[in-house]
Nucleic acid binder design. Sequence first.
RNA 1: CGGCGGACCUAUCC
Length: 385
Amino acid sequence: SAVYEILIGGLVKAGRVEEAFKLFGELKWKGDVPGVSTYCLLIDSLRKASEIDTACKLFQEMEKSGCSLDVVAYNLGIDLLGKAGKIVEACKLFEEMEKKGHKPGIISYSVLIDGLAKAGRIEEAYVVFNKMKDSGCVMDVVTYTILIDLLGKSGKVYEALELFYEMTKRGDTPDVVTYSSLIDGLAKSDRIDEAYELFLDMTQKDCTPNSVTLNTLIHGLFKAGRTEAASKHFEEMGRWGCVPNTIVYNTYIDGLGKSGNVKDACFLFGKMEKNGCVPNVETYNILISGLGSVGEVVEAWNLFEEMEKKGLSPDVITFTSLIHGLGRAGEEGAAYKILQVMEEKGCIPNIVTYNALINALGKAGKVKEAYKILDEMRARGFSPD
RNA sequence: CGGCGGACCUAUCC
C-alpha cells in the first residue's frame, strides 16, 4: 500500500493523473484504505484541472473512508466548497476543524477569507480576518494579496493601497500576483495613472510582469480610452517573454471593438488562431456583441452559427448579445425568436436577457409584447428594475 | 518528510 501511494504521488507530480487514478482504484480494490495525503494529492489535481465537482465527491469519499482529516485536508475541503459555491458548507467545515481540535493555520484563514470574498460576503470575510489577527497568525504574501484583491473588487482601492504599503514596510515582498491584483483594482476604479505607475514600479523592482499582468494593464488602458497605449503593450508583450493567449486576444479584440475598430477586431480574430490561440465562447461573445452594437447583425448571426459548428455551446451572454443586436437593428421580431431558440437549447434567460428584449420591444413601440415579457419574467421569479 | 491558499477577458439598462 505504501508503494502504491508513493507511485500515485509520483504520477500526479509528473502530470500523469489518469494513471494515478487507475492505481488509486487498484489500491482501493484490494481493500486498502488510502492515506489522507494520497487523497489530498488527487483531490488537488482535480481542483487544478477545474474538476471541482469530482474533487468534492472524492473529498466526501475521504471523509467517509474513516481516515481522520488533518489541517491540510480541511484546508483543501474549505477551498473546494468555496469554489463550488457552497460557502456555508465551507464555514461549517472550518468550524468542524476547530471543534476537532485542529488549530486553523494561515492557509485555513486565507482560503476561508477568499471564499467568503468571492461569494460576496465581505462582512463575514472581515470577521474571519479579525479572528485570524487575534489568533496570532502571521500574514504572508498570499494572505495580503487575497485582501488586496478583495478590497480592490469591493471598491476600496485606497485600503488596498494601504495594505500594499503595510506589507512592504513589514518586509514582505509583493510578487507578480500582488502587483497584478492591485493594478486591476486601480484600473477598475478608473485610476489608470496609478495603475500604470505600479506597473513601472514592479518592472524596476525586477518583478517581471506575466501575461495576466499585461492583460490587466491592456484592459485598463482600453477602459481609460487609451487605445494606442493598449495596442503598444499588446504588441510589446514579447519584451517580457510573454505571448498573447486566448484571454489576451479576447481583451484586445473587445477593446478594439468598443473603441470603434470592429474591423480591426475581426482581423485579429482571424489572426489569433494562426498564432495558436483557440477562440472560446467568450471570444465569440465579444465579437457577436461588438458586431451587434454597430448594426452588423448578419455577421453576428454567422458567427453564432460558426461557434455552434465548432462545438462551442452558446451561453446566456451569447443569446443576450444577439437579442440586443437585433433589437438595435430594429428586428425585434427576430430578437423575440432568440428567446425561444435559447430555451430550446436549454439555456435559461436571466434578468439581463429580459431587459434587452424588453428594450428591443419598447423601442419598436410594441408595448403590449413588452408587458407580456415582463409578466413572464415575474412568473419566473425575476423582479424587474 | 510529503499533500492545501492569491491576480486577467464577454451581454441589457444606469
